[in-house]
Design a protein around this nucleic acid. Sequence first.
DNA 1: TAAACAATTAAGCAACTGTTTATATGATAA
DNA 2: TTATCATATAAACAGTTGCTTAATTGTTTA
Lengths: 123, 123
Amino acid sequence: MLKNVSKENDELCVYHVIHEDIVAQVKHGLTDDYHIQKVAELFRALNDPTRLKIINALLLAEMCVCDIASLLNMTQPAVSHHLKVLRQTNLVTYRRKGKIVYYALSDEHVRNVFYQGLLHASE
Amino acid sequence: MLKNVSKENDELCVYHVIHEDIVAQVKHGLTDDYHIQKVAELFRALNDPTRLKIINALLLAEMCVCDIASLLNMTQPAVSHHLKVLRQTNLVTYRRKGKIVYYALSDEHVRNVFYQGLLHASE
DNA sequence: TAAACAATTAAGCAACTGTTTATATGATAA
DNA sequence: TTATCATATAAACAGTTGCTTAATTGTTTA
């Protein structure tokens, strides 16, 4: 009924658990830490207005870095930095054609996540 | 064809726009800044593993603050802090019963966003 | 009342994030 | 090769975030 949540043994910060049964029951239903971490990474990639605008743009057309920079009125390194984040989260893909690198959305799944977010935001 | 993106007039940092037509076309299709900001706030609320675990728990049952703290093995102020973020984003609601405050998900919409994220993370 | 307790808020701090400036890489053309 | 251009990376910095500890707010009960 009492739980010690301190990390050091010499400390003793105690908190009560009121509904032990519910806590135990919920604990079994929780998604594992690995997947929670993955989901957090996904949403972290989508929590920046600039990156959302990039996603939004790529929903409409495949674009190269300098065009995105121009569209969003940002410096090219800043855009490149954001694209790296989106790449690492598998939200975008790219293909090189000569000097130019074209970015596009990875799949329709990204579109769903974006629209789900927009739907919630529009309430 | 050339665009000056510097913010000061005495600077002159110039970047090229390669596909002027696509940039112009995409610009018209972009969601307005206000809604982009709202979506960013939503995803910012969901980018933290702890908050995702709270959402995950509330998917399964209505819970009070100290039970959540116990479940996640965290201090009660830390949990309270996260709940405040979730409240401000309209992701959770709460009701007071005596000294205890019970939290629950705002609507089924939150469930959709969470599952969409999990779906992407599980690929 | 006063004591107890669930929850919130505030202050302080380490760690992380987004931007800028500068430099490096990779590809094409002269 | 050398020059040019599109992109990527690195370093530095201001601003933000999440946690801890401490103090405060509400509510119930003795």
